[in-house]
Nucleic acid binder design. Sequence first.
DNA 1: CTGAATCCAAATGGATACTG
DNA 2: CAGTATCCATTTGGATTCAG
Lengths: 142, 142
Amino acid sequence: MATMTAAQRREQARSDYDAFLRDCPTNQLLGRLSDKWVGLVVAALVPGPMRYSDIGRRIAGVSPKMLTQTLRALERDGIVSRTVTPSVPVRVDYELTPLGRSLAGLLTAVKNWAETHFDDVRAARERYDEETAENTDAADVA
Amino acid sequence: MATMTAAQRREQARSDYDAFLRDCPTNQLLGRLSDKWVGLVVAALVPGPMRYSDIGRRIAGVSPKMLTQTLRALERDGIVSRTVTPSVPVRVDYELTPLGRSLAGLLTAVKNWAETHFDDVRAARERYDEETAENTDAADVA
DNA sequence: CTGAATCCAAATGGATACTG
DNA sequence: CAGTATCCATTTGGATTCAG
């Protein structure tokens, strides 16, 4: 097809590029890691293996649906392992794999950052909100 | 009100607890940091200050709406600074603050983890998908 | 106990068009 | 250039119910 216009070629290139970015390995993984519940589940499992319902209670606010969804995704990615004990009633334990533990360290670091720098962030927010309010007032007067 | 039933008290306690978790400083920050675009924007700004439209082009896939939203949130939290140069046309530069740079290191570490361990994750996914397919087949046969 | 399935409200976010 | 405003499709995710 040498009959494309310049605009068509540009559009084509843009689509290809976007597709590349969407399929980019790093982005796939970052998307998964930036999931709201992933950090909480991984953090919950750091101390050791834990049962399904215990994780649910520990996170407090997660629905069984999201908990299962998150655990399944993490299991598929080799970050947690799932062990079924066929007793009655059934018992299922989840545990971080070595891969999961290597990740947990980083997520913990981010969590620690959030804790240690929260005062800075809160101060910044207050400053920002005040300035915004001033500007709004000024705009109203003007 | 001492006329609550046990169920009502339990419900009340659960609501309070959930509210506490929602308002928990760390969770607020982690929620912000686990935003899909935050990592990408912060990463884009690591090399140095950058103009609005340059960030948009660099991320390729972000709509102006989300870009503005993300930048505003980061500015409010004191992670990026916004500098307006009143030329014609207007020029706006965004830059990581010292606070932002301290965070960028951690996010970069996570990004690096994603890059170095992607093969492990991909292998785990293939294994998981195969096993799942087998189980599905077995169930169909049985 | 550990989920799977369904329903549905709400938030997310992209596309588009417009303004200063 | 740097956004803002609006519309709308998709997704998210909670509640509920049921099953193994």
